[in-house]
């Protein structure tokens, strides 16, 4: 990943290798203590790893750095980052840069049918419930203006194997909810988390613009001194909407949950038990049932134990489970 710096107004941009994510931060001159614009159209890219290495430990920087100077030396092909620290210590980093092409994602928030704006904190607190390893999440508009987030199970992952997490946010938790009812998009959670933690730390409100599945979702932060955009590709809807899904994402978005579910559990269990005696034919189509050769029902009764002495470890005999 490279970080791109453009002269004129300083902007930092990056795109993922697969081009499924793009981020840009544009700084107004007033963001800085002093700002001298470079030649217009100046552009360079530096290695993200090297750049991040300079700012590795934020608490340490907070403690010791008094001033930071960013200098683009075009002829020398270097980006110079100079940290002026306490006790007269100066740390200078020279990062070699390369010329590069323009990096700009094509997006237009005006073309997005749905828009959602609220404090980053609300969404940050919501995503904390999803496992760190979850790749993608689905955001959807539910009944009553509620906004839902749900784990997205990957294509080809076995149904009934992965845990699915879901939660709903009330419309009054947002500043603005202008979404197409029933709409939903699925995007990369990891990249979203990155933006959320930045937005939460800076207490900036976050706006999400989205359209149909497959079209990019655009996340923006409002700040007078800086414009931040994150553009994420979204998944196309799978074709198999009509079938009852083993995977939970091919269906129309579930309505707000109520306490009563219509379980088929009773009938499922009856089918399970009877197939044990009949053989494979008639076994319920649940993918979680692992076939075994049928055998006659056994007596489940076990021996009762006598006179447990209180305060001693368990007796040796097998106990009835009650």
């Amino acid at each position: 990943m490279k970080c791109i710096i453009e002269g004129g107004n300083l902007s930092l941009r990056a795109a993922s290798a697969s081009r499924s994510a793009f981020a840009s931060f544009l700084f107004a001159p007033l963001f800085f203590q002093r700002y001298e614009p470079g030649p217009p159209g100046a552009r360079c890219k530096v290695l993200m790893k090297s750049f991040l290495g300079v700012f590795r430990s934020l608490p340490a920087l907070d403690k010791s750095v008094e001033r930071c100077l960013l200098l683009l030396r075009l002829r020398a092909g270097q980006l110079v980052l100079q940290l002026h620290c306490k006790h007269g210590v100066t740390r200078t980093h020279h990062l070699a840069f390369q010329e590069c092409e323009q990096l700009q994602a094509v997006f237009d928030t005006q073309c997005c049918a749905s828009r959602l704006r609220g404090p980053a904190q609300v969404l940050a607190e919501a995503v904390v419930h999803f496992p760190q390893t979850l790749a993608e999440v689905t955001l959807g508009a539910g009944a009553g203006g509620r906004i839902g987030l749900r784990s997205h199970l990957e294509e080809g992952s076995e149904p009934g194997k992965a845990m699915v997490t879901e939660l709903w946010l009330a419309p009054d938790e947002f500043q603005e909810v202008a979404v197409v009812p029933g709409s939903r998009i699925t995007f990369c959670l990891k990249e979203f988390r990155g933006l959320l933690s930045f937005a939460e730390a800076s207490s900036l409100p976050l706006t999400i613009h989205y359209d149909e599945p497959g079209r990019p979702a655009i996340f923006t932060l409002d700040d007078p001194l800086m414009e931040a955009h994150l553009v994420l590709a979204t998944l196309l809807d799978p074709e198999s909407d009509s079938q009852p899904p083993p995977a939970t994402n091919g269906i129309s978005y579930p309505p707000a949950p109520s306490d009563d579910f219509t379980d088929g559990l009773e009938s499922y269990m009856a089918a399970l038990e009877s197939s044990a005696c009949e053989g494979e034919a008639g076994a319920p189509p649940s993918p979680t049932f692992s076939p075994r050769t049928p055998c006659p029902a056994e007596s489940d009764r076990m021996e009762e134990e006598d006179g447990a002495v209180p305060g001693t470890p368990p007796h040796k005999k097998v106990r009835d489970g009650h």
Binding site: S50, V54, R56, S57, A60, V89
Partner: peptide, 11 residues
Amino acid sequence: EGLREAFSELD
């Protein structure tokens, strides 16, 4: 302390 900080900065 000073040298520790400097060394921690090194790549």
